[in-house]
Amino acid sequence: MSAHQEHPAHDAGHDDQHMHADHGSFKSYLTGFVLAVILTAIPFWLVMGKVFDKSSTTGLVVLGLAAIQVIVHMVYFLHMNGKSEGGWSMLALLFTVLIVVIMMSGSLWVMYHLNHNMMPGIMPDSIREMRNMP
């Protein structure tokens, strides 16, 4: 007989404890939800209230709060930490951080260049004259 069949009650209790430790409690889900709501409300208030004079400052603060919110979601809802799944969760966290940095910097780069290249007031005089021709 195998060890698993000889002590089924002991193994089942161990499995229940292991599963409970990996999954969050109602309190941890509620904490994550409250943090997510706060991290959503603050950027909304910053933009709608025009708290900062420069829009670039507002954008950087909003991106920083978005990065914090990603970490909150990963910790409280995906239960990622350095101990679970033999460290693979930490590797997934590092990969996610890398992807988020690439996406945020790429988005800022695209928005900056669109703003710089698509401004109608910067049109050359020759194109402006051609538009005014009958």
Rank of each mutant, 00 (worst) to 15 (best):
L60G: 00
N115D: 09
G121F: 13
D125S: 05
L114Q: 07
Y29E: 00
F33T: 11
L39A: 01
E129V: 03
Q17L: 08
G121C: 01
A36P: 01
G106W: 05
P134Q: 10
S28A: 07
K83W: 11
H20K: 06
S107L: 14
I122C: 06
A41V: 11
M90I: 00
M123T: 07
T40M: 13
E85L: 13
M103V: 14
I68H: 11
I99M: 05
I102W: 11
I99P: 01
D22T: 07
A3T: 15
L39T: 02
I122E: 10
I68S: 11
I102M: 09
T31R: 15
L78M: 15
H23S: 00
G64T: 01
G86I: 06
L65M: 10
L94Q: 01
H113Y: 12
H116I: 00
D125G: 08
G82M: 14
V61K: 02
M133A: 07
S56Y: 06
M74L: 14
Y112V: 00
E85A: 04
M80L: 01
E85D: 04
L94K: 06
F44Q: 00
Q69V: 06
G49W: 06
Q17H: 08
I42A: 04
V110D: 14
V51Y: 03
D125T: 03
G32T: 07
Q5S: 14
T31E: 04
G59L: 11
G82N: 13
V100P: 05
S25A: 02
L63W: 10
G59R: 02
M104D: 06
L98F: 02
E85W: 05
N117F: 05
R128D: 09
A3Q: 10
I99R: 02
A41S: 15
M118C: 04
T58L: 05
T57F: 10
A12C: 09
N115E: 12
H113R: 11
K54T: 01
K83V: 03
M133W: 03
S89I: 00
A66L: 12
P120D: 08
D16F: 03
H14C: 14
V97S: 04
F26S: 03
M111P: 09
V70H: 03
D22N: 09
V51H: 15
P124R: 10
G59M: 03
S105K: 03
H14R: 14
G121P: 00
H7V: 03
E6C: 06
G106L: 04
P120I: 11
G82F: 02
H73M: 12
M119S: 09
M1A: 13
W109C: 14
H14L: 09
H7K: 14
S89Q: 12
G24N: 14
L94Y: 02
M118E: 10
M103S: 15
V47A: 04
S56H: 10
A9W: 01
L60I: 00
W88R: 09
S89A: 10
A67Y: 14
M74W: 12
G82I: 04
G32V: 12
Q17R: 10
G32D: 13
G13R: 09
M118D: 05
L114M: 12
V51P: 01
A21C: 13
Q5R: 10
V62Q: 02
H20N: 07
L65D: 04
S89K: 13
H4I: 07
M19L: 13
